[in-house]
Design a protein around this nucleic acid. Structure first.
Lengths: 106, 106
DNA sequence: ATTATATGCAATAATTTGGTTGCATGTAAA
DNA sequence: TTTACATGCAACCAAATTATTGCATATAAT
């Protein structure tokens, strides 16, 4: 879960995911063309995405193709979104109460 | 969105959110008691959570109370989970195809 | 066989992050 | 009005992150 959030915590990496959303299965070279930084920098970002299991690699000859994997994102949903949703109404109510108590100087 | 992901990308900060899940509206001192690091370290983590809008502060006398805010997490869902879900079946299919082409050496 | 292309590996440098410590300030209690 | 408590501010340090560069290797094309 830590690697997943860290992978998503960088704009460049989210941009790479966006590129794969737009066109899945691109090679390293194709992805690099659309970025401003060096190939090695892009490689490192992609490595983190692979380690977070967000991107799957398929070698085709000398080309390395990159495919999106949606599974880890679903885990975020289950672990965090669901949790927040469950607490949502209660949390907002206690916050509201606290704010009222504070402004009313009870 | 960047601050949000970065805020969630640290285990200590997710632990602080967990503490507030368990007991919403805790003061800085109460949160610190449950952590191993210095008060200042905790303060800095909480500041990032505030800037990501995940935690809302209410001052009560000399105490600073911390409340969860579920809204930004919902934004993650809309921006990322939804997007992944929409592409999910298509992405898995193209990946499957690529894997088959690769192993069959066509 | 030679050349061009696609990628990997390793050393390095700059920046960001996570943490500590010491001192200052504001609020409540004795 | 002292004293204790809750927190803020700032300087500083170590470790992790991001990016660059130069060279090496493997595959494809001529």
């Amino acid at each position: 879960m830590d690697k997943l959030f860290k992978a998503l915590a960088d704009g460049t990496r989210r941009e790479l995911l966006d590129q794969l959303f737009a066109n899945n299965g691109q090679s390293l070279g194709e992805l690099c063309k659309q970025m401003t930084m060096s190939r090695q920098a892009v490689t490192k970002h992609l490595l983190l995405l692979e380690e977070a299991n967000l991107v799957t690699i398929v070698w085709q000859g000398r080309e390395k193709l990159h495919y999106l994997n949606p599974v880890p994102i679903a885990e975020i949903y289950e672990r965090w979104i669901g949790k927040f949703e469950r607490h949502r109404i209660e949390a907002l109510n206690t916050l509201k109460q606290a704010l009222e108590e504070d402004t009313n100087h009870e």
